[in-house]
């Protein structure tokens, strides 16, 4: 073997090692949390409320808050995001306004969550008087996930072949009819993937939510009630040293949730690939 070949083998070994280290880290995190968390999870953990600040009992109200806040954020962000994507890909003819919109979408994607938290706090919670509530939290999260939805929807819409549009227009359909009847149905799986990923982000978010939705122990009923999401609960349990067991259990639920989200997103993505 020549020196060159030897160097190459050594280098490729190092690259492979990096890949394996990355996977090892992932597996260590997941296995560590699952092995410590799953044994503290049972049906009552899902169905009961917490007692003594979360030292005992379950996380039912936090699951409710999580779903509630995420739902509010998506009900707002999905139509706005899909609408923006439609404008950008179907209607706009380029130029300055579009450049500004794209630039701001990218900027929004780069803003740290704590800044969203500060903004949500001063704007929704204080200025608009919504208080710490599911609504404030949902609106703040909607701002955060908006770029994700715009980007994934736009990519999905771009994959629709122009011949489809031309075919529809040639039959006398208006642009909007073409979008509703042809473009959207074809791009739905891609759009759904984006929405699923956004749910993942909304569920996992902590910094922005703690400043806007509060951290009430009770399950929110009205949209104006405060609520504590699972991520916030995990944070409080850990930082205030309330219960290590419950923290592991909550972290395990969050990991399960992320696994589910990734699985669902990949399934819809595969579905698209099969269809095209």
């Amino acid at each position: 073997m020549t020196g060159k070949n030897l160097t190459q083998s050594a280098a490729f070994l190092a690259l492979r090692a990096a890949a394996i280290i990355t996977l090892a880290v992932l597996f260590i995190i997941i296995i560590y949390i699952m092995s410590n968390g799953l044994r503290h999870i049972n049906t009552s953990f899902f169905l009961q409320g917490p007692t003594s600040m979360g030292r005992d009992g379950g996380i039912a109200p936090f699951i409710v808050s999580t779903l509630y806040v995420s739902a509010v954020s998506l009900v707002i962000a999905a139509p706005v995001g899909i609408g923006s994507a439609l404008y950008l890909s179907e209607y706009s003819k380029g130029g300055l306004p579009v450049r500004i919109i794209r630039f701001c979408t990218e900027t929004l994607a780069g803003i740290p969550s704590i800044i969203f938290g500060l903004f949500g706090f001063v704007f929704f919670v204080v200025s608009l008087g919504m208080g710490w509530s599911v609504l404030s939290g949902g609106l703040t999260l909607a701002c955060m996930v908006l770029p994700t939805i715009i980007k994934t929807s736009e990519e999905a819409i771009k994959t629709v072949p122009d011949t489809y549009r031309e075919g529809s227009m040639a039959l006398g359909a208006t642009k909007w009819q073409t979008i509703v009847k042809v473009v959207l149905p074809v791009s739905v799986p891609g759009i759904i993937t984006g929405i699923i990923l956004s749910i993942g982000r909304a569920v996992g978010e902590t910094a922005a939510v703690i400043l806007t939705a509060g951290s009430s122990l009770r399950a929110p009923v009205s949209i104006t009630d405060p609520g504590r999401t699972m991520s916030v609960h995990l944070y409080v349990l850990t930082m205030e040293g309330i219960s290590n067991e419950k923290a592991f259990a909550t972290a395990a639920v969050l990991i399960l949730f992320v696994l589910g989200i990734n699985y669902a997103a990949n399934k819809t993505a595969t579905f698209i690939r099969r269809k095209v």
Binding site: T22, V25, L26, I28, I29, I30, Y32, I33, N36, G200, V203, G204, E205, T206, A207, S231, V232, L234, Y235, T238, N244, A247, F248, A251, L254, I255, V258, L259, I261, N262, N266
Partner: peptide, 18 residues
């Protein structure tokens, strides 16, 4: 992809415990 999806609070919790 999974690494990107794990919530930051879970990373923090892992960091704190390990």
């Amino acid at each position: 992809e999974l690494l990107a999806g794990i919530p930051s609070v879970v990373y923090g919790f892992f960091g704190l415990s390990v």
